[in-house]
Design a protein around this nucleic acid. Structure first.
Length: 481
DNA sequence: CGTGCAAGGATTATTCCTTGCACGGTGCTATAAT
């Protein structure tokens, strides 16, 4: 089959980006496919092209309503009008109408929660589905176990829909995430297409400091001395607001972003960052998914992320254009406890589990039971999910295991900041990759300073790219991976 | 578990320290009563 012809005809591109063609081929051969491709831009083509070529409905499971809207808009813009999204923003009436007209739709976007509703799931399983796409598939591993359990139920739908080929898409997945995706989507004989996470143009740095104040000072100096665009990741909404205020006073174009803000404001801020009106974003981990900005120069972490996979994902938002970029992690020893508290705290205690289950048994709804047991809505949903198939003892064991796993992941980050081995090597190790060649200029452990790697404000005008010949060759051999 | 802030007390200026308490991430969905 001449895929290049199809690509040119339908999308106007002359050639595929690395990995794309292989993924499209795999799907056209009806194989379950897990595609781990670093940039966001090329991934939607992986289902859009085969979707156009095959008959039947393409169902795309998407984690965020805003992401669905973006995808719908971009398909429409390309001229594909057979697109729809089912989510809570679609009024009942229109949803009913959509179900009547479903044969006129080619690409249907839906959240896992909606898909798992019996009425909606059953309706969709009766249709002819050509591809079941799971976008941002790492969410299965990252959110499924302790935040959005509906992600763990997707396999049931796959089975009930008669096992259409599944295409799982993500930018970063270590071995564990890969195993989780394959297991929970019930992807038998999955064809895994993986590109290296190594990015020669992105250098890693750890800065050990003594207090929160020192971090603030460091950031003040950093933003004065070096250029954006950049993202500062912080651990709380409050810190995001505070830091933003302080840095604004220094005259920087910066805004805060977190889940406590209105959807409209979040959208505006994201747009301003994309367009360059804002050079910095100070955000919690709410920021990033679906953000396709090529020229981000710096990602700075004000605190430890919960795992190496999360760190690589967040830091990897820098330097997609292939130009010099840096990922700095600011570390104060006490941070370990802080992150541990946040990460462990949302899993319910044994007594809370018993209390909640007792309330459910006496006939209360999930919401009321949660209230009576004094636990969060999220905790309640988790207990509800696990107790559907497990005994109480096994539910408790599961939570203990999850806490243990979270601790293990946190340890990866502790070792990242405290052990004296090459940072890049360590991150690659978590992804089961090995350094094939060493660079003279590598990371803070190997002995470069981020100020020297980044172009600072005084020389940015004169020297756009200060690469020596070795770095040029690296970039040639490994064009923006 | 650690931080940062507000309140309280000691003290004798408008400042200094202790104590106590709140707070700490990620998103879907739901359709009640004003």
């Amino acid at each position: 089959m001449d895929l290049s012809y199809e690509l040119k005809k339908r999308f106007g591109y002359d050639q595929f980006r690395p990995g794309q063609e292989e993924v499209v081929q795999s799907i056209l051969q009806q194989e379950n496919t897990l595609a781990i491709l670093p940039t966001g831009m090329g991934k939607s083509l992986c289902y859009q092209l085969p979707g156009e070529m095959l008959s039947g409905l393409v169902v795309i499971i998407s984690p965020l309503v805003s992401l669905m809207e973006d995808q719908v808009a971009s398909l429409r813009k390309r001229g594909e009008k057979r697109v729809a999204a089912i989510n809570s923003f679609l009024p009942q009436e229109q949803r009913k109408q959509l179900f009547k007209d479903i044969h006129t739709i080619k690409f249907l976007f839906i959240s896992p929660e909606m898909l798992n509703r019996p009425d909606i799931g059953r309706f969709l399983t009766n249709l002819s589905i050509s591809i079941l796409v799971v976008d941002e598939a790492h969410c299965i591993s990252q959110w499924g176990f302790d935040f959005r359990p509906d992600y763990l139920r997707l396999g049931e739908f796959t089975r009930l829909a008669g096992n259409p080929p599944v295409l799982a898409l993500t930018a970063t997945a270590d071995q564990q995430v890969e195993r989780d995706i394959i297991q929970y989507l019930q992807m038998t004989e999955a064809n895994v297409i993986r590109q290296s996470v190594d990015r020669p143009n992105l250098k890693y740095f750890v800065e050990r400091l003594n207090s929160e104040r020192d971090k603030t000072e460091w950031l003040k100096n950093r933003l004065t001395a070096t250029s954006g665009p950049g993202i500062i990741y912080v651990s709380s909404r409050k810190r995001a607001e505070e830091l933003t205020r302080i840095l604004q006073q220094d005259g920087h174009q910066i805004a805060s972003y977190h889940a406590g803000k209105e959807a409209g404001d979040r959208h505006i801020i994201q747009q301003q960052f994309l367009s360059g009106e804002l050079s910095w974003i100070c955000a919690t981990n709410a920021f990033g998914m679906g953000v396709h900005k090529e020229n981000i120069r710096q990602v700075i972490h004000d605190q430890l992320p919960a795992s190496a996979a999360a760190y690589v994902q967040e830091a990897g938002r820098a330097g997609r254009d292939g130009n010099r970029s840096s990922a700095v992690l600011l570390y104060v020893e006490e941070d370990e406890q802080k992150v541990r508290f946040i990460v462990q705290n949302d899993l319910p205690e044994e007594s809370e589990v018993h209390h909640f289950v007792a309330m459910r048994k006496s006939g209360h709804t999930i919401e009321v039971s949660a209230e009576l047991a004094g636990i969060s809505e999220t905790s309640a949903r988790l207990i509800q999910y696990y107790s559907e198939t497990l005994t109480i003892e096994d539910v408790l064991k599961t939570f203990t295991k999850l806490k243990y796993d979270k601790e293990e992941k946190l340890r990866e980050m502790i070792s990242y900041v405290s052990e004296n081995t090459c940072l890049r090597e360590k991150l690659l190790f978590y992804f089961d990759e090995h350094i094939s060649d060493r660079y003279d200029v590598c990371c803070s452990v190997c002995g470069i300073r981020s100020e020297d790697w980044l172009l600072n404000k005084s020389n940015v005008k004169n020297n756009r790219t200060l690469l020596n010949w070795e770095e040029r060759i690296e970039l040639l051999l490994c064009p923006h991976s």
